[in-house]
Amino acid sequence: MEDFGIIIACCDQDYHYAKGCCGSIRHFLGDVPICLIIDGEFSAPELEKAYGVKVINHLNVKNKVLRERSFGWGLTKMVAFWESPWSKFLFLDADTIVWGDMLKYANFKDFDVIVDRPLYKDTLEEVSRFFFTTQEVEKHFPEFQWQKHFGEYFCTGTFFAKRDLFSLDEYIYMLDFIKENPNIFWFGEQGFLNMMIFRDSDAGKLRLGQSSFQVIAPKFKWDELKKRFPVEKTGPVVQGDDACVIHWAGPKPTLYNSQVYSEPMNFSRRKCMREAQGLTGLPAEALLKSEDIKRALNIYQKKLVRKVRKAMKLSVKTGVNY
């Protein structure tokens, strides 16, 4: 496919998963070009050398608005819509892998954006929890008939899209609106990106395609995932023409977590470790395990900092010393 690549957004806490995501791309899709959009100041020299990965970060984003306002949880991926190295791309969150020939869904001849069609239907309560507060959307965006797409709202961990799908002015308007109204759209960009896509589709501004190609791991039992996505000593075993993105949108696939079926990610991380860093066996396992521990410690540290700040604010407000 001409002028096409895969874009992964990551930060320091999920970079080790992004490496696994790259490994899965190379295993299933060959030499498809890859780009990382990094929220942070670290680099990815091993991936650049092994896989020819391009890197976009704060330093080389061309647009000032994107550089200053579109990095951080839930916003980093939005950079892809205007600064993708290719006119067409597949986007992936870092905590995903591809499984099988995902490119069979890339029908850019008929569509400008192709999103996941959920196999499950969210309740009204779940729409208001994971996407947007419906009453507020009705109030502020009366032209958007959100009820029309009830059951179609998707997890934005993966999608196909064309560059410049939206005008930058439309995005800036949404950023300004969210700043003034922080309690309407949820889960980072997920709520407002769903609204932008379905609203513009209804208005005839873009051609929307939908296919069921995302597997949200927490929505399935361990045994169901293992049966569909077996990984043997020789590697992953794709059954028939199965192709999808596995997304651990919840508990993460650490190396030895018996509560989460993680073998597809484990295989991909080991593959990347071998090809990008030349490590196998015990040295590789030790480094992979240390990455999991480092992530857990970072999360614990950030939670502790939030608790301390909350306690300090309460102390100031009540005059109680902690």
Rank of each mutant, 00 (worst) to 15 (best):
D223P: 05
K62M: 03
E224M: 08
D292G: 02
F144R: 13
P218Q: 05
K313H: 08
F89V: 05
D176N: 14
T96Y: 08
Y322T: 09
V215G: 01
W186Y: 12
L29V: 00
F220E: 09
K227I: 00
G23P: 09
V137A: 00
K109W: 05
E285H: 11
Q301T: 10
L119N: 13
V32Y: 05
R129G: 02
V320Y: 07
S315K: 03
K54T: 06
Y17E: 14
L206I: 01
G188W: 10
P251R: 12
A50Y: 08
F42T: 10
F81G: 01
M1W: 05
E285L: 13
D14H: 09
P251M: 01
V237T: 12
G281H: 11
F141L: 08
K303P: 02
A276M: 01
D31C: 06
K221F: 12
G278F: 03
Q145T: 02
V231H: 12
T254E: 13
G240L: 06
R228F: 02
S258F: 08
C244Q: 02
I293P: 07
L193I: 10
N298Q: 13
K109N: 15
L304G: 12
C35P: 12
K221S: 15
Q259C: 04
R306F: 09
M174R: 12
F150Q: 15
Q239G: 04
Y120D: 06
I184W: 01
Y322P: 10
P236S: 04
V320R: 14
I299C: 08
F213T: 03
L297N: 15
G188Y: 12
G191F: 01
F130H: 15
I25E: 02
F192I: 06
Q259Y: 07
E275P: 01
F213P: 03
R270P: 03
I97H: 12
A311E: 14
L175P: 00
A161V: 00
V127Q: 01
V305I: 15
L255Y: 09
W82I: 00
H16S: 11
H140T: 02
T318H: 08
P33M: 09
P45N: 05
V115M: 05
W248T: 00
I114P: 05
V79C: 11
D292N: 13
R26G: 02
L36D: 04
